[in-house]
């Protein structure tokens, strides 16, 4: 079964909607945990777009990039969670608006 079963536009719209949702979450939430989760959503939105495009043109590249994004996301989460622990330990809060000591 080659090709994409649903129109590409729909998938792209879904990916865009997911991306915007993630971005909105990133900008709106103050808790660093939720910000990380929003980031994951954005990454996955991009990955979805790649997979869909790869399927549409019957190329493996889309899935390879998906694997890459998965790896990046895993690495990002491991670093991010480490940061979360440090932030909690130093500031006794996860509110990123409180942790703004690095300002000009």
């Amino acid at each position: 079964m080659a090709g994409l079963q649903v129109p590409l536009e729909h998938v792209m719209l879904l990916a865009a909607a997911l991306f915007v949702a993630g971005l909105a979450g990133l900008m709106a939430r103050r808790n660093i945990l939720f910000m990380l989760m929003s980031l994951e959503v954005m990454l996955n939105a991009a990955a979805l777009a790649f997979v869909a495009a790869g399927a549409r043109w019957g190329q493996p590249d889309g899935q390879i990039v998906f694997m890459l994004i998965l790896t990046v996301a895993a690495a990002e989460v491991s670093v991010g969670l480490g940061l979360v622990l440090q932030v909690q330990r130093r500031f006794k809060t996860l509110d990123m608006d409180q942790a703004n000591r690095l300002r000009g």
């Binding site: 990133l26 900008m27 939430r29 910000m35 990123m96 942790a99 703004n100 000009g104």
Partner: peptide
């Protein structure tokens, strides 16, 4: 003026980048 932008708020940076 530029130093004023450097306010240490992560969300502000993310918004600016977006």
């Amino acid at each position: 003026a530029m130093a004023y932008l450097q306010n240490g708020r992560l969300r502000w940076y993310a918004t600016a980048m977006a």
